[in-house]
Amino acid sequence: MDSALEIDVTLDLPEFRLQVQEEVPLGGITAVNGPSGSGKTTFLRVLAGLEPGTVGTVRFAGQSWQDDATHLPPSLRRVGVVFQDARLFPHLDVAGNLSYGARRRGVKEDHVARIAEALRITPLLNRGTGGLSGGEARRVAVARALASDPQLLLLDEPLSGLDAELRATTLRVIADAVRELNIPVIHITHSPTEVAALADRVLGFSMGRCTGWQTPPVVLNAKAVLVDGDVMVHLGEASFPASAGIRSGDQLTLAIAVEDTLLSQHSPGDSTAAFSVLADVVGYNGDVVLLDLSGQILRLPMSGFLSSAAREPGQKLWLTVQKFWARSADKAV
């Protein structure tokens, strides 16, 4: 397939084996989501050509990066990699870091300037890397990778170690920049919020193997309000206790894994779920039902256990959510 990254590789490391067979579409942002230690970073290193012990094939848009006879070095793969730590060159200033890859790949200066602008680092260009804050260093690292004219951008939890507010703003800047430049991205993360904010599709990862495509999380906007002295989350007609750390008046983003949702025609009553809320059916397409929750449209897979009458527009369905991640303006909880 010409517009895909075809991967069929095995890598044996001491006490760890990575075995991946997957085809990743080359468009938009693909999140690789899995627990710590599941081999996500190793997977990314294999794609970048940084693991010489890798056996198998990697084909990028029909071009072989690795097979029995080939192991293209990282310098020839034209991948931009943003590592967990920024890895900026300490002997070069910010502009020098940006032009490092750009010069080697013949990228024009005005394009580099545009990338610096998109990542809002233009005022930092003449500074050394030592005095940069965490968020600035990550943005410079992303800009440096983008300035090397990559045909694929690999992000390895590029926001780890930053506080939630900085993560949110940095994430938005990165997402806008890569969409503007139209470069396919593989984004490694174990944060549902990051997945929700960025990804067009989600690849599950566990114990060194891909566990298949996951549905991207549902994102809902809600508001925290004070009810009888308790901070409650207000969503449609439902109110439920907010997690610790959320303040009254906060605007919230709720990220909900589709696997953690349940649709029913009748109220589930008291349960151990986080909350249940009544929503209107507004459409149905294949296996997906469209729900309107106080003006927010949700796409959810329709269970075969619900009657076909229940999915007709105008019907009401209970949406039960077992757990969610809430992010407010200043911190994630």
Binding site: G49, G80, F83, G101, S148
Partner: peptide
């Protein structure tokens, strides 16, 4: 090694990254 890896992904060959990263550091 993280520095030399970063340089390699930015298009530097082995000799190039020696000259441009390893030697200055």
């Amino acid at each position: 090694r993280q520095m030399t890896e970063a340089a390699a992904t930015l298009g530097a060959t082995r000799a190039d990254l020696f000259r441009s990263v390893v030697l200055p550091l």
